[in-house]
Write a protein that binds this DNA or RNA. Structure first.
Lengths: 233, 233
DNA sequence: GCATATTTGTCCGTATGTATA
DNA sequence: CTATACATACGGACAAATATG
């Protein structure tokens, strides 16, 4: 994808820019373009072009970009510009180190009593994945998978942890965008439908220890798979 | 402390502003003033005053403030300004939920082999605390305590976790600034010297499970103590 | 309750330094 | 090596929201 066509798609996203602070809305719009894959990893984001496309000032664009850099969605090369992050194997390993620490711990020790709705969201994410698969909507399956993991972390009942997980999942989408055509999306996510189901059932049955163990194995497998795919790039 | 004198202390900190990007340096300077307690929780940070004091443009100040808002060190009230965050009981509970999840998990499952220097940092933080106590330097003890917990998380060997822990500890300093005179600083941190020592010894002896259990108890106690202190405000 | 002053939010023009064709 | 493009940073402007007398 060229810079121009990427910017054109941004113009479409401009329709949805109309809520809170301008910088915030710009950040949301750009983040969306990135995680949806319409701006490829490594792609450049010139400030003036963005400002003109979104009809906002350079200052506002700079504020938005800084925020996205803090979120690791973009990277800033001083005096050169900002680019869509290109997560390497080291990033994948680091993200999975965090996920392997946080997700099973949330499943084991989460304040389930305080967060009954969180368990519902886990179940809903599983259903969402099944339905998407029935429609052969593989990006939908991938999205449901993210909702599943977000719901697992939600068991901990911590706003800060939820936010952190959001950042990690955004990074994961960048990772996926490096390994895909649509066939790869299916091949990667479909096998996890059954695993998610099993973890959800263990959770509903109250066996949190078993669910956590399953999840650990699950994450370790996914990491190996991704790193293997990276090795072939 | 008045707004004026707080801003005057910021002028002193200006000396140390001379490294990377201007906004970055401004953010560092302001963050320092906040976590050192020279800008009180709830204190207001007018953009123009900051810009004049630090001799930078208002745009640059806004960029820096936005970053600190993202870090939860400051909060922005739309069209009113930014203020030093005032963490309430709900924030304390949330922070400890995260800490109780992350810290024991890092102690249990951290990639110790990959990070031998991390264990050294744990030991060093204990020594630092002892030496500060010998000098009756109670803020020094508090600082060493933070280094201890940072080192524990460092056992996980994850850049992203280290960064997240840094934010949490910055928030903790705001919490402490709400409950202190200097006597409270001593009363709160001194008892943890022995606990830190014990955890470090268990770690060095290779009994990570026991260290993690101790740490969990430790954190739960600290949370209760803080919430109790909050109740008397 | 109203008029006024202050401050934020946003935008523009411009100067300077750095990287790249 | 020159020229160009761009990021970085600055200062000034104005409307809108807010606080104040």
């Amino acid at each position: 994808m060229t810079v121009d066509s990427a910017l054109a798609s941004l113009a479409d996203a401009r329709a949805l820019v109309a809520r809170t602070s301008t910088a915030e809305r710009v950040a949301d719009a750009v983040r969306n373009e990135v995680v949806e894959g319409r701006l490829r990893p490594g792609g450049r984001l010139p400030e003036v072009a963005l400002a003109e496309t979104l009809r906002v000032s350079r200052n506002t664009v700079r504020e938005a970009l800084s925020q996205l850099v803090a979120e690791r969605v973009l990277v800033r090369e001083p005096n050169r510009g900002v680019f869509v992050a290109v997560p390497g194997p080291a990033d994948v390993r680091d993200v999975y180190r965090v996920r392997l620490l946080i997700e099973p711990a949330a499943v084991r020790d989460g304040e389930l009593a305080a967060e009954p709705s969180a368990l519902v969201r886990v179940r809903d994410a599983v259903l969402e994945g099944r339905e998407a698969a029935a429609r052969e909507d593989w990006p939908g399956v991938a999205g449901a998978n993210q909702h599943f993991h977000r719901a697992l972390v939600g068991l901990a009942g911590s706003e800060r942890l939820d936010q952190q997980m959001g950042l990690l999942l955004a990074e994961m989408r960048l990772v996926f965008h490096r390994m895909t055509g649509p066939t790869a999306v299916r091949a990667f996510h479909e096998p996890y439908l059954d695993r998610n189901d099993r973890i959800a059932e263990l959770l509903m049955a109250g066996d949190r220890e078993a669910a956590a163990t399953q999840l650990t194995e699950y994450l370790a497998t996914a990491e190996r798979q991704i790193l293997a795919a990276y090795a072939t790039l």
